[in-house]
Design a protein around this nucleic acid. Structure first.
Lengths: 240, 240
DNA sequence: CTTACCAAATTGGTAATACCAATTGAGGAA
DNA sequence: TTCCTCAATTGGTATTACCAATTTGGTAAG
């Protein structure tokens, strides 16, 4: 379903099979997983492959490996941050309705505040970068292409204009997570022009150093995107 | 320096040596790293150990492994999200001054908005949880202990009161990152009482459903913490 | 029956080796 | 110069082996 660049199918599948295995067994915090050797046998993989998958799950704080003892599930509140969710989305594991709502809400908070900071701090090269992306988007739209990646680039460039690289990384995780959805959003070509007009309004507000205007523009823009997500949830609930 | 639970010294060291190696060689986006076999020889480790470390770096989006081709450094804008920074902090790799400022700023944004949402949505059990943590903190202070973990628990419980678990995970990453610093902050015992009073003010504002009051209380509280961080940066700049 | 102790099985951590498939790049043929 | 061929390189995987520490079980002493 989802193309996973830079991640071999086998290894991705192992993580993707390990996560549901943990969930399905209803393991709770502190519970011990089967040993590496047993997992290798159960999933028909080598111990090395299992260890690689476990290393990733450990880095994402989903499990904990205690030498000479076993593999344990970490308490939920200590589990991985958004990276773990991104990984699951990449693996094609659908987000729950609650998670979708939460992601949408947090994205709104982050981007509203980002655009305020951007309006306060933007440097000439930031505005220039926004303009370049807008021009590129015009070209894609004129060629009847899908401006999904340009849309992401614009939003990320807006965050970059805050000068806060950590901020950029966090927001980037959200855009990595929803890349395919975003492509579907722009697929029929009807939404791109309005989106582009709203982007231009945001660009202008940021360029003239108007935080309130930029925040308002971003707020209105996000409402459209969010209603699309909510409709998707309702469709899924109806079984579409 | 930093205790790393659930991560063996060797493997942690391998990632911790690999990251500076990448940075030191001034590799740029798209550059190829040495092959796995070469890295294994250079770091005196087996290929399996190297592959485990590389799997983690790939999951954190720092590198990209192309089968039958090589290992490549990802473009910065596509690099790991906050998890990569958390990992570096855990490994004892000090954050740059810019990164510290960025983390502090983003934490402020997240917590200010979180406490607003918490005041709007708090349920009785959320307030109860806050009260329990406050009571536990009182006990620790009375016993002349270090309430660093209770401080983190309070802030995280505040985010949990938003009902947004993704929000909680992101903020949790920040607290994982700064655990040792937080212990140092409360080490001499002089800051705990004021912090506790400010926490109580935040709890009251949230309990009575007062977003503006809660946000103001959080803002004042964070100012004290942030000035501590900034002093640390100045000390480091002077070579202390 | 309880306690203390010992030994074997289990577990994660590491290393070494081998093979596969696909990419890559150099060298030769047209 | 262009195109083709083939061997070296590379990441992906599996197998095997050993280590050290923990767990576990039973045994013997109290």
């Amino acid at each position: 379903m989802i193309a996973i660049p830079a991640m071999g199918d086998e290894r991705a599948n192992l993580i993707g099979r390990l996560l549901p295995f943990i969930a399905h067994r209803r393991l709770e915090a502190g519970d011990r997983l089967p040993s590496e050797r047993e997992l290798a046998e159960r999933f028909a993989a080598s111990r090395g492959a299992v260890r690689e998958a476990l290393a990733v799950l450990e880095a994402l704080r989903i499990i904990e490996r205690r030498p000479n003892s076993g593999i344990y599930l970490r308490p939920v509140e200590r589990q991985g941050s958004i990276e773990a969710i991104v990984l699951q989305a990449e693996l094609g594991i659908p987000l729950t309705e609650a998670e979708v709502r939460e992601v949408v809400e947090l994205r709104r908070i982050l981007e509203m505040q980002a655009v305020r900071l951007a309006a306060e701090r933007r440097r000439p090269e930031d505005v220039q970068r926004l303009d370049e992306i807008l021009a590129r988007t015009d070209a894609v739209i004129a060629a009847a292409g899908n401006p999904a990646d340009e849309d992401a680039a614009f939003h990320l460039a807006m965050v970059e204009a805050t000068g806060n690289h950590v901020f950029l990384r966090v927001v980037n995780a959200f855009y990595l997570m929803s890349r395919n959805r975003r492509r579907a959003y722009f697929a029929d070509g009807s939404r791109a022009p309005l989106s582009q007009r709203q982007h231009r309004a945001m660009r202008d507000a940021v360029a003239e150093g108007n935080p309130d205007g930029a925040e308002a523009a971003m707020g209105g823009h996000l409402r459209g995107v969010e209603s699309y997500w909510m409709e998707l949830l309702e469709k899924r609930a109806r079984g579409d």
